[in-house]
Amino acid sequence: MGDFFTVSALVVTFASGIRLATPFLLASLGETLGQRSGVLNLGVEGVMLLGAFGAYYTVLKAGSQPLALLVAIAIGIVMGLLYAVVTLVMQAEQGISGIGVFLFGLGFTDLAFQKWVGTPIPIARLEPWPIPGLSDIPVIGEVLFQHNPLVYGAFLLVPIMTYLISRTTFGLNVRAVGETPEAADTLGVSVNGTRLVTIIVANVLASLAGAVVALEVGNFQQNLTAGRGFIAIALVYFGAWRPFGAMVGSLLFGFVLALVNQWGALGIISGSASSLAAMAPAVLTIVVLVFISNRVGQPAALTRPFDRSN
């Protein structure tokens, strides 16, 4: 245990926690916006996988990370449009169609990987961009300011998303559409138009979250995201539909994951105890929520399709 309480070990743990939190954060920010407008997307995991494969394949073939991100964004837009057709036009049950998206993403990426790539060929990983000046601060610099640009981007999105939801007309519309779509409609807000935008943004962020995993790992394999999309959805509830809350949840989950990992690396936990330790992030997420005991209700119109003829 003594090994753990050294500055270097703690720095490693916290920096690793932030990296692990990033995909959760990106995906849960998007899902937060989507749910605020009344749309539940259980397909986050599937879109993450598609984004991960798209980004991996782009780097593999074209060697460009910026292009890979563009491809991931494009995949997010396409999946967003598809999901919009399913939920807004066809008005399908959102939970179940999301599971369809998940299965499709899981199967399709594995299939595409086997057909087009074959074997896990490594690609260049995202390089950290130390922020000049700040990264030189002892300890804090190493923990916070020596990450890859996507990590900074994800955390910068938190205030942006907060501002978007609570301070802009668009945000007002999103909230109105998520709480009382009928009233919003009477006031001339396009319910489905607003939801189309949030669905696309949510899918783009989910796709980028997958891209982060693939570019961090520098490789691809079937089920690369390993259930992270579902955890991201849970973290939206943890965050009580607020971007800041989603960030706290993502960081909590990421840190505990990193902590368990670090203890494993230092030999503090070993053998079958590691499977007990692997429960820790999930247990702690529940426990924390019990104590902060938020009773914020979910958006009233969540999962409810809007149909003027009703």
């Binding site: 369809g100 499709f104 199967g107 299939l111």
Partner: peptide, 12 residues
């Protein structure tokens, strides 16, 4: 994997 993807399409 093809079966899993197909399963997803059927559900959607």
């Amino acid at each position: 994997a093809m079966i899993i993807a197909l399963n997803g399409v059927v559900v959607i």
